[in-house]
Lab assay of single mutants.
Amino acid sequence: MATGGRRGAAAAPLLVAVAALLLGAAGHLYPGEVCPGMDIRNNLTRLHELENCSVIEGHLQILLMFKTRPEDFRDLSFPKLIMITDYLLLFRVYGLESLKDLFPNLTVIRGSRLFFNYALVIFEMVHLKELGLYNLMNITRGSVRIEKNNELCYLATIDWSRILDSVEDNYIVLNKDDNEECGDICPGTAKGKTNCPATVINGQFVERCWTHSHCQKVCPTICKSHGCTAEGLCCHSECLGNCSQPDDPTKCVACRNFYLDGRCVETCPPPYYHFQDWRCVNFSFCQDLHHKCKNSRRQGCHQYVIHNNKCIPECPSGYTMNSSNLLCTPCLGPCPKVCHLLEGEKTIDSVTSAQELRGCTVINGSLIINIRGGNNLAAELEANLGLIEEISGYLKIRRSYALVSLSFFRKLRLIRGETLEIGNYSFYALDNQNLRQLWDWSKHNLTITQGKLFFHYNPKLCLSEIHKMEEVSGTKGRQERNDIALKTNGDQASCENELLKFSYIRTSFDKI
């Protein structure tokens, strides 16, 4: 039985969820670079991206490699990797027998973001014989899940209580170790020597080791999670996991709180800001991140802002960003909400898709409305799209047979046209069989910064309504002859009103 693990408890099935942008060198404390989270699957090609990484700022997932063999891993080693800020997950990587050479110096898994409450997941690794993470000293947050690894031993010899604050939620089941077939031998045991430290858990006094050649490092209890030197002297209180010299914040392997210019500090002093819960960055760093993602459509890219001495992905609820200094300031009234469309555009074809934009005031991208039916549609669209004030790209209304009016965009005031449909149009209306009105132009103002209007096959939309939009939106004169079809717009509506004058002759039985 794995020490510190839980057996036999019912657990939810383990679901495996399925960018080499360097964020800056980590400095003297770390020998390499800070790398983003990685999802490495199918083959070993991307694994080489770990070569210079000291910190993975995010998670590391290595999974679904069915053609790899043990010899493929023999020359692979990433000794610079010290810390993973989120979680480490391995799933069905064939041929991998140990992690001792792959990650010989991995010391800390912070667990800032977890995989279903777990910071370390080893699942269905069919050839893994031992973990071998002999320098792993601290899992700051989260638990361990090690399950269905039929060859995995050296679990009962690990004292997880020396690595985690609590072992109650560890789930370590259905491994070879369960069948008591392992016969784990710690260093020196074969020669009758006791080389590794022994600890007591559940009444068992057991030597602690990761492999037959690597003991588990056990520091004096007084050192807590700070770690200790090879001689057993406690590291500085700002260290986490390990250090090369005692009581020196510049000799830590990793930091308990924050890293700044080669030393570990309790908090980031001005003019620095907390970033990702582990390091200090200056304003320029946060500003660069903001600008890199301002026009990016890459998933996970955030326009970072500053709030409460932190550089964070977005302002919290009730705050909006001051564009001059990136500071989050309290909103006066309802907060603006910028919604970034991942692929640059979004099609609204149902109430469900409209709900995804609920509360958005600025759309960074283009909207395509293609709704053919739905219950209580006008009210639903207004509830979900009615706060949109600005669209950076274009607005396209296409084959939306259920629409009679666009009044559900009740606050839309600006279409920038930074991206144009077919390279020309910022407003595009095609084949809307029941569209009769755009907006009530006596109450609604709309500016279209650039781009043209396109109207074709809107049989109940009168040309007068379209011409009014040209005047109000500032697009009059931009359109070419064929942009607004004269014969297919309003051709099934009563669009022309003329005053009919009647004269009559009164007659009676005795007068003409």
Score class of each variant (00 low, 15 high):
Leu29Thr: 14
Pro31Ala: 03
Gly32Trp: 06
Cys35Glu: 00
Asn42Pro: 03
Arg46Pro: 07
Glu49Gly: 06
Leu50His: 01
Leu50Trp: 03
Cys53Arg: 00
Gly58Pro: 00
His59Ser: 09
His59Thr: 07
Met65Ser: 12
Thr68Ala: 12
Pro70Glu: 02
Phe73Arg: 04
Ser77Thr: 13
Ser77Asn: 11
Phe78Glu: 01
Ile82Trp: 15
Thr85Arg: 12
Asp86Ala: 02
Leu89Lys: 01
Arg92Glu: 00
Gly95Ile: 02
Gly95Leu: 01
Leu96Ala: 02
Lys100Asn: 15
Leu102Tyr: 01
Leu102Gly: 02
Leu102Trp: 12
Thr107Glu: 04
Arg113Trp: 06
Arg113Thr: 10
Leu114Gly: 02
Phe115Gln: 05
Phe115Ala: 14
Asn117Asp: 02
Asn117Ile: 07
Ile122Ala: 05
Phe123Leu: 14
Met125Ser: 06
Met125Cys: 06
Met125Thr: 04
Val126Ile: 05
His127Asn: 03
Leu133Met: 04
Tyr134Leu: 09
Tyr134Gly: 13
Leu136Met: 01
Met137His: 13
Ile139Glu: 01
Gly142Ser: 02
Ser143Thr: 09
Arg145Lys: 13
Ile146Gly: 01
Glu151Gln: 13
Leu152Trp: 01
Leu152Cys: 15
Cys153Lys: 06
Cys153Pro: 00
Tyr154Leu: 04
Thr157Ala: 08
Ile158Arg: 08
Ile158Ala: 10
Trp160Tyr: 04
Arg162His: 09
Ser166Pro: 12
Ile172Glu: 05
Ile172Gly: 11
Ile172Ser: 13
Leu174His: 14
Asp178Thr: 09
Asn179Asp: 04
Glu180Ser: 13
Glu180Met: 09
Cys182Leu: 05
Cys182Asp: 06
Gly183Asn: 05
Gly183Ser: 12
Gly183His: 07
Cys186Phe: 08
Pro187Gly: 14
Pro187Cys: 06
Gly188Tyr: 07
Pro197Glu: 07
Asn202Val: 05
Val206Phe: 15
Cys209Val: 03
Cys215Val: 09
Cys215Trp: 08
Lys217Leu: 11
Val218Lys: 12
His226Pro: 07
Gly227Ile: 08
Ala230Met: 05
Leu233Asp: 03
His236Tyr: 03
Ser237Val: 05
Ser237Thr: 07
Gly241Trp: 03
Gly241Cys: 05
Asn242Pro: 10
Cys243Ala: 00
Gln245Lys: 07
Asp247Glu: 04
Asp248Gly: 02
Pro249Phe: 02
Cys252Gln: 00
Cys255Arg: 00
Gly262Cys: 03
Arg263Lys: 09
Thr267Ile: 02
Pro270Trp: 13
Phe275Pro: 01
Gln276Ile: 07
Asp277Gly: 08
Arg279Gly: 14
Asn282Val: 03
Phe283Lys: 09
Ser284Ala: 10
Asp288Pro: 02
Cys293Val: 05
Ser296Gly: 12
Ser296Glu: 15
Gln299Tyr: 03
Gln299Thr: 08
Gly300Leu: 07
Val305Glu: 03
Asn308Ala: 06
Ile312Leu: 12
Ile312Gln: 04
Glu314Gly: 05
Cys315Leu: 04
Cys315Thr: 03
Ser317Met: 09
Gly318Ala: 07
Tyr319Arg: 09
Thr320Phe: 14
Ser324Asn: 08
Ser324Phe: 05
Leu332Val: 02
Cys335Thr: 06
Pro336Ser: 06
Pro336Met: 04
Pro336Leu: 07
